[in-house]
Structure formats: structure tokens, C-alpha cells
Amino acid sequence: MLMMILALTVVDVFGRYVLSAPVDGKTELTRLMMATMIALALPIVSARSQHITVDLFDGLFSAHAARVRDVLVNLLCGVSAVILAWWVMFRAERLMKWGYVSDFLHLPLHPVAYFVALMLAITGCVLLGKAVFCALIPLSSKGGDRSLDRV
């Protein structure tokens, strides 16, 4: 889908200058595809602990404390994601009820919103699963899941 956005942009610029006929509604297609892609990646990022975190004080936690911490953090984040998913669904219902559509192509806006809600719910379940996993696995194999951001 990222390749599609890429192709769409190139075709658009090319079309505008060479054929002077841009792709209508390209912006809104890009926006909807972006939302879908990022929502799709959220559970993966959460599963692989690729969220941006501060790990400055990792050394201060004993293995035991680190386990308690990881369980609690994953629990907290998992519950938050599930609650957020519920409210995104609330907004998706509203979009459907009022018949919101995109500006040019008049595409309905609620399907993408429902998809985002679903992906957030899955993210929540993944994080809750990690909380359980952290609580159950033996201490020695747990080196604290380090991750670096990429900015």
C-alpha cells in the first residue's frame, strides 16, 4: 500500500505537468491508506516492543523488580489500548450514523475508523498477552526488552 501511495504521487506529479490532468482525490486516498497502514503496523510495533521508551534507569531495577515493572507497564498499556479502541468504535459509529464521506470521491469514512478500532483492540490484546507472558516466563531468560527509537 505504501508502494501505491508512492505510485499515486508520482503519477499525480507527472500527470499534472505532462498531461495537466491530476488524479482527482489523490489526497484523500493517500490519507485513508496511510491510516490503514499505520493501524495495521500498531500491533506489530507493540508486540516487538518498538515503542519509543526511556531506558535510562534500567540498571536500577533488580531482575525481580524489572519483571514486576514489565508486567505492570504492559497491563497498563494494554488496558489503555482496549479502552481507546472502544471509543474509536464509538466515533466510527458516529461517522456511519451521520453518513460522513470524503471531500472529492465521496468515499464513506467509517470503514477505516472501524478498522483502526479493531487494530487498537488487537494491540491491547497483544500487550495484555505480553503482561501474562512476562509474569510467567522464568526470570533468567528475561533481559528486559530493550528497544531503540529510530528518529
Binding site: 501511495i5 489526497t27 496511510m34 474509536v88 477505516v112 483502526v116
Partner: peptide, 26 residues
């Protein structure tokens, strides 16, 4: 509190100017 927060999620994911980020990263 939470309905606007959910609105923020949907809104940010669809911000047109931010669609440049994945392209530059790629």
C-alpha cells in the same frame, strides 16, 4: 475526555502533511 481523544487518533492518522514521513523514511 475519551471521545475527543479517539477523534485525535483518527485525525492524526489521516493528517495529509504527515504522509510525507513514511516516504522520507523509505
Amino acid at each position: 475526555t475519551l471521545s475527543p481523544a479517539a477523534g485525535t487518533v483518527l485525525d492524526s492518522l489521516q493528517t495529509e502533511m504527515l504522509s510525507v514521513i513514511p516516504l522520507f523514511v523509505l
